[in-house]
Amino acid sequence: MSYGKYIAYGLPDKVIFSFNTKDYKLPKGVTFDFEDGSTKKTPEEKLQHQKGKVEIAIGSYTINKGISDAVFK
């Protein structure tokens, strides 16, 4: 996490979230084209493919202005 102008509230400007993809399951009914396994991977490549990363760069916050519960439903 890195901080900028919202550091007084402890809110980051950038968050990088890493996780092991092998621990996650895709929702039912969602399909993707997976690799066919025809190419051999090095151990480093296999390890890398078990990691996922989500990076969120936040430009602006509106703080303590109230949010309806309906937003989360």
Binding site: L11, F34, G52, G59, S60, Y61
Partner: peptide
């Protein structure tokens, strides 16, 4: 410090890096 925030709305850009997606 973080308890000062009761709620927030924020705008951002999200980059997803997952091998099979």
């Amino acid at each position: 410090k973080i308890s000062l925030v009761n709620n927030y709305e924020a705008n951002g850009k999200m980059k997803t890096n997952i091998a099979f997606l």
